[in-house]
Every structure is written in C-alpha cells, then in structure tokens.
Design a protein around this nucleic acid. Structure first.
Lengths: 279, 279
DNA sequence: ACCTGAACACCGTTCAAGT
DNA sequence: ACCTGAACACCGTTCAAGT
C-alpha cells in the first residue's frame, strides 16, 4: 500500500519535472516554471539549489505519504535529509511554504495528466471524460496530496507562503482554468455543445470542475459510515459527470452513447500503466 | 467581520443545541445525541461536565474563527478557559478529538439548517434548492468550520478521535444521508422525478451532495487568481445545481421555471435573519 | 555567500501530587 | 472521583558562529 504510493509518487513527479517542454499554447507559465524547474541556463550553484529542492520535495512527499498530513514536519524533513535546519529554511521560508511546494508539485502532476488525457481519440465530450478519469486517477494515487492542495488555499497557509511560490501556484491554477475553458470552447466549436443565454463558458467550466473535485474529495475522505460506500467507486465519478453533462445538453447524451465504454477505453489506451498501481 | 462570525456561530450553535426535539422520523440518532447534548436525566456532575464541554467547544470555535485553523491549540484553549490542562484532556483525548468535537457541532448546525430549509413552500425541486441555499449559507457564515469537517475525515484525525465521538459523527452523517435520500424519494413520489434504469436514488443523492460540496468548498477557498472570481458568487451554486438537476430531468426544468426567484424567496422567507450577517 | 546547530518559544501529552 | 500544573518530548523559527 505505502509502497504503491511511493512508486506512483515518483512516476508522476518525474513526468511533471521533465515536462518543461509542455507544448501548451499559452506559455504564460513558462517563465515562472523555468525559474524553479528547468535544468538549463543556470550557474553551478543555482543548479545545485534546484537539484536539492527537488530532492527535498521528493523527501517531503514520501514523509507525507508514510506518516500522513500531521506527520509532516520540517524537523523530520531535516532529520531525514542530508542538510541542517538552516539549509531547509533556506529553501522553505516556513512549514506552510513547504506545504505549498508540495501542492505545486501536485498541481503540476495533475496538469500533466490532463494533457495526456486530452490525447484520447474521441468526441469532445469523450475527451472531457478522459480528463475526469485522469483527475480521479491522481486523487487515488496521491490521496493525501490531492487533499493537501485544498488546504493550501486556507488564508493561514497562503499568508506564510513565499511570494514566488504564491505566484507560481496562481499561474498553475490559471493554466488549469484555461485548459478547462478550452475543452468547452472546443465542444462549442465542433457543435456538440450550445451555449444557452444564461450559461457562459466560465460557468460551465466551473461547474464541471466543482463536480469532479467534490466527487473525488468526498470519495477520498470516505469513511465506513459514509454515503459513498453504498456506491460503486469505479463508476461514481463517471455517473456524476454524466448527469451534469447531460444537463448541459452536451452531445452525445448519455442515453445515446455508452460512456462506460469510453471510460474503459481511456483506462486501457491512455493510463494502462498507471491503473495497475491502484488495484 | 470577526464579530459577525461570532454572532453567527452562537446563533447557529444555540439552535443546534436546543434542537433535541428535532421531530425527525428516523430517531436512530436520538440515543447518541442524548448522551452528549441533552439536558435532562443527568446527575449533577454529569450535567456539569456537559455544560463545561459546551463552553469549551464554544471557546474552541471562537479561537478557530479568530486565529484560523493553525491557530487552534489545546494550549490556547487551556489558557483562555477557566480550567487546567488535565481538565481539558478530560474532555478531549487529543487535539484531533477536539477538532472532531468542533465538526460534530458543525454538522449538527448544518442538519438544523437543512430541516429549516425543508419548510419552504414549493415543489420538491424548490425544496431541494432551499436546502442547497442553507448549505451555502453555512459555508459562508462558518468558512473555517465548513472546511474543518472535511479535514476531520483524514485517517490521522479519525484515528485519534475517541470512539464515542466517532460514533456520534457517523450517526450524524447517516442522518444527513437519510435526509438527502428522502428529498429524492419525495420527488419520485410526487412524480417530478423519474428514475432511469442506471441511476439509483443513492446515486442521485450523492451527485447532488458532491456538486454542492464541491462548489462551496472551491468558493470558500477561492483566491484572487481563482476561477471562481470570474463568476457571480451569489448565483454560482444555484447555476451549478440547476444544470445538475436538469441532467436528472427533475421537473420543472430550469428553462420552464425561474429558480432565481425561488432562491430569492428562500432568502426572504426562510433565512432573512441570517443573510444580514454576511452582507 | 552559504551552512551549521544551539537556543528559545510554543505545543501535545502524561502523571504524581493535591483536593 | 476529579483537578492541577510540573515535566518532557517534539516542533517551528532565528541567528551568531563557522566554512
């Protein structure tokens, strides 16, 4: 169980770190990402610091996975690393800053998975289903990190995060939003979705995200007594987003198309290597 | 701002505490609630302990509201209370146990608001809209507590919570689920909702909850750069659940009925006193 | 310029002593 | 039986001294 998390953590994080040539059309994030992730055009000492930071975030993620949220402390991070407290505080201005670094790692990984999902061959609604699949996949592979992203939005955390990291986080969120909006723009362009007068792209995009987030968050934090346990966890998200997309009148409707087959195709054709880590 | 939170906290908590004669038909919760909340049939010393616990939870809530999540410590709770550390630990077996006590308070308040919302005069879909309204109201009045409920589901918190409180929490959740299911049963009974072959009451009930929770959680933790800020916060939730309920084909559909008027009626007719605390 | 670890304040938790 | 607060371990954060 823990071993699986470690595996998946490394797999996903390596993808994210090596994905600086993301090929996204927006590019607004590039500058910021280069500053903290890229491996070229840096002096020796800068390079050393970047490497060490990645090493420290890796270590922090493994502590988070093994000991849970409350178990993560800069004290432990120091003890398990090769460095001293002063050096740790040279990288993270506070415990909350360290948490934000983990969340940036998480959101980067999610964005990478989203882009992979978009490569699924199918209608625009099927592509959106694939993106939801990838979001659920991340929530299952990295439940603690998935939940951490939300808690990093709390005012107390944000206040104690360095401005550089806050900016990077905001830029990543903007890129996710832009990505999500684009899915709906594509659907409108290919004619499968028609905007009604009261509903903007932004509204649809947000409702789509809220449903996926809410479902994954509740499923992740499900306890024995919870409502989620009455339901099949493997079709939960698909059912929820299907109802929602039907409500948007996004063609083809679920009565006219078997999206369970789409879901299975996404699993096999895009995320076959990753799904093994869960079951 | 802070003052408003204090006000609302007291208002809501008093309602919850005095609502032991809730008149709900399930009743399975009664025994558990009586054990920790009721004010009759207890010896002097038991009564004293119950009173003190309420006092301590009140105090903990006010610390949470004033200093945020990270600012809540049993050290501070001790210092601000009239008791010593030993007595505090007599009530809460750990810091996490104290957090769980806060969440039980929160969920009780939410349930009370739900029951109030259900008194709205209208169709079954309108009543459901009223319940969503009350959920959003709570998220706005008590943002920190609203988010705390989720984090109390983390394994690390649950493990360190006393078994009595875990049982009480589970019982409350079950009552909320039963309440939610009942809304859908009512809709089926009055003919405004028809179950299709793939969708059970449990599925609809959960998707409804996931959307409301997801929307409120994202709105609560919205930052400047967030997608939420592009949208009107006052119609966000209504729009999201309208799309979802349309997808369920819950009559009357939003194209045939102006639910913004329903929303405003709920505000005026049910929660007029509470809404002032926000704006 | 960067790193180290001692030092201090704060917090969670326990338990012997007191009532 | 219940309450108190000293005691200890752990953690966040700083900074003078060292390289």
């Amino acid at each position: 169980m823990v071993k699986q998390h470690e595996l998946s953590q490394h797999m996903i994080s390596e993808q994210a770190a090596s994905d600086t040539s993301c090929g996204c059309p927006h590019g607004g994030l590039k500058g910021l990402l280069d500053k903290s992730l890229a491996r070229i055009g840096l002096s020796k000492s800068e390079q050393k610091k970047v490497d060490r930071e990645e090493e420290l975030v890796d270590l922090a993620v493994s502590i988070l996975n093994e000991e849970g949220f409350a178990g993560l402390s800069l004290e432990k991070l120091t003890a398990q690393s090769r460095y001293s407290k002063g050096t740790i505080y040279n990288h993270f201005s506070s415990k909350e800053d360290c948490l934000s670094a983990l969340c940036i790692r998480a959101v980067s990984s999610i964005l990478t998975l989203f882009k992979r999902a978009l490569q699924f061959e199918g209608s625009s609604r099927e592509k959106a289903v694939a993106v939801h699949y990838s979001y659920q996949l991340y929530a299952r592979l990295q439940p603690t990190l998935f939940m951490a992203v939300l808690s990093s939005k709390a005012p107390g955390v944000r206040e104690k995060t360095s401005t550089e990291r806050t900016q990077l986080m905001d830029a990543l969120e903007l890129e996710i939003n832009t990505f999500s909006d684009q899915m709906f723009r594509d659907a409108i362009d290919d004619g499968s979705l028609v905007l009604s007068e009261h509903l903007s792209i932004e509204t649809l995009s947000f409702s789509n995200w809220a449903m996926s987030f809410g479902t994954n968050a509740l499923a992740t934090s499900a306890t024995e007594a919870k409502a989620v346990n009455r339901l099949d966890p493997n079709t939960l998200l698909l059912q929820n987003i299907s109802i929602l997309m039907d409500g948007m009148n996004w063609q083809p409707l679920s009565k006219d198309w078997d999206y369970r087959k789409t879901w299975q195709r996404v699993e096999k054709e895009i995320f076959a290597d990753d799904i093994q880590l869960i079951e």
